[in-house]
């Protein structure tokens, strides 16, 4: 019997941990109990170190955010762009397809066995102060943000943002140090951001995040051919679906119960607001295409277009 040690840097109740556990029970079932997981009580590394932790075999299976190690992954930044989609399943599955077709051969994730990639739900502007419907409204508030494309985008928009780790959101918002944060719906519930009053949504989200679900390659290579086939069978799109469905579910719960209960007012960004973001994002996409092509991706713009078309097809 093979036991995989799984590590998770979010609490065991968080949807990613749950999805990881669900994937593990699928693994156990499909292999008739020959393979199973052992969830470690504490993460083996902080989020940025998780990729290396899997590569080096500290744990056998885990997930990470590609943007947590800036400079390392370029192709995967497409999954951080605005206006991708409103459902995590659709963007995740589409992303997985594009990933297998174009990104995987380029080997940015070399050193680990990629089981699948996925994204979260649409990124939203949350704040404690006032309804934000225009870029000017947003410019009058102080926001906590994470890294990645949204960091570049908000710089370009001239917003007053500060890069802080997600778990600090509660403290920053509850004390009023910051007025808001950019998050998917789920995080308002999971980080207990009960002080949030306003949400500004964008069709397809203002930003997203690229996640990778991975296994230690040595552990994979040591499996029997039969077991390898089981792992392969539930890799790729299966992973994208398990994590994406889980995310959509908690997004909905947060939106429909938690946020309703605390009285969060949802507004949609105005047409002009959206166009302004689009204009600034266009430059970032050019920059990304150049960087990705330098890393060996052919026809980056076409890949991006195919990614968008694939998402549209799925929803």
């Amino acid at each position: 019997q093979t036991v995989f040690n799984t590590s998770s840097w979010v609490p065991p109740t968080h949807t990613i941990s749950v999805a990881q556990a669900n994937w593990c029970s699928e693994l156990e079932k499909e292999s008739s109990g020959r393979m199973k997981c052992n969830a470690l009580p504490k993460a083996v590394a902080a989020p940025p170190g998780t990729f290396d932790a899997i590569r080096d075999g500290l744990a056998d299976i885990s997930f990470t955010v590609d943007g947590y190690t800036p400079g390392r992954f370029i192709n995967t930044q497409v999954a951080e762009f605005p206006f991708l989609g409103d459902s995590s399943v659709a963007t995740s599955v589409a992303y997985q397809r594009i990933y297998s077709k174009y990104f995987a051969p380029l080997g940015e994730h070399r050193g680990v066995k990629v089981l699948g990639v996925f994204t979260h739900g649409p990124g939203i502007i949350f704040n404690t102060k006032k309804p934000v419907t225009s870029a000017a409204d947003a410019a009058s508030l102080k926001f906590r943000i994470g890294g990645g494309n949204i960091n570049e985008l908000s710089k370009a928009m001239g917003w007053n943002t500060t890069l802080k780790p997600a778990p600090e959101s509660f403290e920053l918002l509850s004390t009023g140090v910051m007025d808001g944060t950019f998050f998917p719906d789920e995080s308002v519930a999971s980080f207990k951001l009960s002080m949030i009053r306003h949400a500004t949504t964008f069709p397809g989200g203002l930003y997203n995040t690229s996640f990778v679900f991975m296994m230690n390659p040595g552990k994979y290579d040591a499996l029997s051919a039969e077991d390898k086939a089981v792992v392969d069978k539930i890799s790729g799109e299966r992973v994208a679906r398990v994590f994406g469905e889980g995310w959509d579910k908690v997004d909905a719960v947060s939106r429909d119960t938690v946020q309703k209960a605390q009285g969060v007012q949802r507004v949609q960004a105005s047409e002009s607001f959206i166009n302004e973001v689009k204009a600034k994002q266009a430059a970032l996409e050019d920059r990304w295409a150049a960087a990705a092509e330098a890393k060996g991706l052919k026809n980056a713009k076409a890949v991006l277009a195919e990614f968008r078309a694939e998402i549209a097809k799925l929803k």
């Binding site: 190690t69 800036p70 400079g71 390392r72 890294g147 890069l163």
Partner: peptide
Amino acid sequence: DRFQEYGDTTAYLLLPV
């Protein structure tokens, strides 16, 4: 060496790690 291999940087100032 590992950071060098992947070209890791910091998130905002893009300083090499």
